[in-house]
């Protein structure tokens, strides 16, 4: 196995305030890795930093063997690293089909290839809403569209930022099944989650992040067994 995504000594800042401190992350090809932590622990910031969306970041990031530290976000995306933001960031004025079009990128070797039709099979709810503007969809539908839109770029790896946030339990379960299906397609996933149960159902490995520091790095199983660690760094 080779590392798909590797982050070394990642520091990030908002203005003058430092929010991430020397993060080290490693995601192997085909793996689902969870980044768990509380609200405000630095999960979303990590995702944005990896994607090159923050103004001030230090440290090195590698994707598929290439040093992407100085790349612009669009080059990173074109290299096959997809990003699904926490706030979903659907283009509300655009229809479902148009949202997908924005995400479309050429097919890539070694990554699953997606078309709108295939995505509608994966997300049957969306199929009925093709012409619906993104702003008139429920939270769950928007989350699915956000994932589908990123998949249109045919990524080999995706950064999934809090996919279960604010969704009804039924939808959360559906979301988990979908992510498992993506894993079966061979997609590499870095998943950030507040909901440990959800993360546990999907991920092989986990990092625990707290106040911008990585506090735990190991298998999901050992995290679940470590009562103290969970008490200290996670909400539930």
């Amino acid at each position: 196995m080779s590392a798909m995504l590797e982050v070394e000594a990642l520091d990030a800042f908002y203005g003058r305030a430092q929010v991430l401190y020397g993060l080290e992350l490693r995601v192997q090809k085909g793996e689902v890795v969870a980044l768990v932590g509380r609200n405000g622990a630095g999960k979303s910031t990590t995702m944005k930093a990896v994607m090159g969306l923050l103004a001030r970041v230090q440290g090195r990031r590698f994707f598929a063997g290439q040093d992407i530290s100085k790349w612009s976000p669009h080059s990173i995306a074109r290299a096959g690293l997809g990003y699904v933001p926490e706030e979903r960031r659907i283009f509300t004025e655009l229809t479902v089909e148009e949202n997908l079009e924005v995400g479309r990128q050429p097919q890539r070797a070694g990554a699953p290839c997606w078309t709108p039709e295939r995505l509608f099979e994966l997300f049957p709810n969306l199929a009925e809403l093709r012409r619906r503007p993104g702003g008139q969809m429920s939270g769950g539908e928007q989350q699915m569209l956000s994932i589908a839109r990123t998949l249109m770029g045919n990524p080999s790896t995706i950064l999934l930022d809090e996919p279960s946030e604010g969704l009804a339990p039924v939808i959360v379960e559906q979301m988990a099944q979908t992510i498992n299906a993506l894993k079966d397609e061979g997609l590499t996933v870095l998943l950030s989650e507040q909901n440990l149960g959800f993360a546990a159902a999907l991920a092989d490995r986990a990092y625990v992040i707290e106040s911008g520091h990585i506090r735990f790095d190991g298998s999901m199983q050992s995290l679940l067994e470590d009562e103290d660690l969970r008490q200290q760094h996670l909400s539930l």
């Binding site: 339990p169 959360v172 379960e173 988990a176 909901n195 440990l196 149960g197 959800f198 546990a200 159902a201 679940l224 539930l236």
Partner: peptide
């Protein structure tokens, strides 16, 4: 509050 997933953990 804990949801169906929370129950597992």
């Amino acid at each position: 509050y804990l949801g169906s997933f929370g129950a597992q953990s």
